[in-house]
Every structure is written in C-alpha cells, then in structure tokens.
C-alpha cells in the first residue's frame, strides 16, 4: 500500500450540522435550509462570503441535520458564520455543529455522539 502524506489545508472539509429552532415544532425543507446557510454567510461575510460554494451532501428533514461540504480554505468562515446565526425569518434558531472532518468517513461513526444507556 502506498503512503500518501498531505500537509496544510485539506481540499474539502465535511461538516455535520444540526439546525435547531427555539420553537421545536418547526421544520424546514432542504431549499430553505440552503437559504438559511446562505443568509448566515451573507450577514457575516457579505456578498463575497455568500458566494462561497457550499454543498449539502445529505439532508434529513425530521431532525434537520445535514452533511455539508466546503473547500478547505473556507471552512473556518463557514463554521464561524453558522455559529453566529441567531435568527432566521424572525425566529430564534441555532446551528449545532456536531462534527467537522476532512474525511467523509470520519462522519460515519463518531465517538462523541455515542449514546450510553442510562437507567430511566
């Protein structure tokens, strides 16, 4: 097997995110989700930020969680913009970034999200 060593920023970063509204009954579809992300980037980084290519690889409507892909140099910006978002359409909301990794495989199983059974 050949060993590949790469330094510096990875070509792509994958983020596993969850959109949480204060009103628990709200859900959004994938297009609105994309708009929310774009609004977050626009408000924090302006038009240049909103133009950053961000791909939604997977979206689950019930839990409002998604896997995003963004170029390595833009990862910090996207993460910061998602953190700073507090309102969408006048409703308070928050992005919970669960995992960030340059490898998509790492998002498949995460020890941070292990649910340990407790006595109810």
């Amino acid at each position: 097997m050949k060993r590949i060593v790469s330094k510096g920023d990875a070509p792509y970063y994958y983020l596993k995110v969850l959109l949480e509204f204060e009103d628990k009954t709200m859900t959004v579809d994938v297009l609105t989700f994309r708009t929310v992300i774009m609004k977050a980037m626009m408000s924090m980084y302006g038009e240049i930020g909103a133009a950053v290519p961000i791909d939604i690889l997977k979206y689950d409507v019930e839990t409002m969680s998604a896997i995003l892909r963004v170029a390595g140099s833009n990862m910090v910006k996207l993460w910061g913009a998602l953190t700073m978002l507090s309102y969408y359409d006048e409703k308070p909301c928050a992005f919970r970034v669960e995992q960030v990794s340059p490898f998509l495989m790492a998002l498949a199983a995460s020890s941070r999200q292990l649910l340990l059974h407790t006595k109810e």
Partner: peptide
C-alpha cells in the same frame, strides 16, 4: 460598500 461585500466580519 465594505459592509455589502464583506459583511459584519469585514
């Protein structure tokens, strides 16, 4: 113009 192009961070 800076606000429009670079947003709150800029």
């Amino acid at each position: 113009i800076i606000e429009q192009l670079h947003g709150g961070y800029g």
